[in-house]
Design a protein around this nucleic acid. Sequence first.
DNA 1: ACCAAACCCGTACACATGCTACATTTTGCG
DNA 2: CGCAAAATGTAGCATGTGTACGGGTTTGGT
Lengths: 218, 218
Amino acid sequence: MVCTVTTAKPVRVRGPYAKSAQRWTEILEAATTVFATHGYRGGSLRDISRQLNLSLTSIVHHFGTKYELLEAVLERADKTVGTGFAAFDFEADCAERGVAVATMERVRTNLERPELLRLLAILAAESSAPEHPAHGWFVNRYRSKRAALAEAFAFDQAKGRIDAVRDPELLSGSLIATWDGLQLQWLIDPSTDMERGMRAFFEWAIPEALPRGDEATS
Amino acid sequence: MVCTVTTAKPVRVRGPYAKSAQRWTEILEAATTVFATHGYRGGSLRDISRQLNLSLTSIVHHFGTKYELLEAVLERADKTVGTGFAAFDFEADCAERGVAVATMERVRTNLERPELLRLLAILAAESSAPEHPAHGWFVNRYRSKRAALAEAFAFDQAKGRIDAVRDPELLSGSLIATWDGLQLQWLIDPSTDMERGMRAFFEWAIPEALPRGDEATS
DNA sequence: ACCAAACCCGTACACATGCTACATTTTGCG
DNA sequence: CGCAAAATGTAGCATGTGTACGGGTTTGGT
């Protein structure tokens, strides 16, 4: 009897195994591609398990339910890809080099991860219906990311990188909007020139923010 | 014997009944809201039939298959709502009053049809995966709408409404992008101010296009 | 080495799906 | 009116779904 008085059960709770972490990310990766190609409702746990030569029950053992899997996938995608569709975590970058150049770089690197972008795009749209399981998640995400970007713009203003006249809130919402919109066009038709579109946004909205104006666009 | 020689069967093909047209649109309407809340793969024919106190088989009688239903729904939504998410049919309006004011008006009126917008948003994202049944449909849609908008911008230039220096193609893609993006934010969180965002786009990208500059935005 | 927990699997259940016969009623032209 | 086509309905099929349960195997702390 270890616990002498309390009624708490002497549950010897053990942590996960060593290789569990790897399985965890394996499942997350597979789930990401499945949800990204079939959507949340369209993608099945069995699809994911088949893609891993794994049992269905294993993946529900790690993540108790389908929705919890989705949440984990979203969290991970949001962190690793941090881009349009409400995902910004590059505040350090913004502070150092300014929102404009940080954004342009992020746009460029994200061109190599279409699956994650597609996932966020599909789920953002799917979850816009209030009954969708992930509705609250995306509401919070967009709110916080918009606020974070606005703060970054304000910081740019404080550093004198962009004109103090501009409205950081308006800039934030507009930047996210064109980012998301261009990304959608690019996902549908990869011949879309995302970089050009994003550069145009900055040239139009914050011409003083870009390092050198190759303003041969318009 | 009406047909004397040909081997054609004397099939007395009759047209649809009188009330069939109404049923047709009833089904389309229900299907629209169902697909708009659950997506294409998530929405079921039975959901639609239940919502109409109708039999499942009736709706497959009118539209042979689920995908054909979707196509009809998309076509109808595209025509009636004509807006972001690649739907422009207001070329007359554009020619008469210019792209900017026509767009702003369309943005305003579309605020009252969230279901159709949500439908187009969800399906545009869903269909970005090449295997999606509606992929081709959306590729064509975006292509043609972007071209149409670019033409409208070029017409505005010819009429002297906007500066000839601007690139109609770039403007077209960017306008659609911010339109789609803002609409997504608005669908997720209705407190988003779409009108302000759209006005900002024109003030930044084509300041000479708006009738009077209430440029108190930034 | 022991043993309980973590892991993994097979099976099964209750339900939902798109679609297909087949039967029945309703409609509208001849 | 009559009759065939349209419209609607009932039942069912084959498949797929998320989740629950029980029984194995592996792991790692004691």
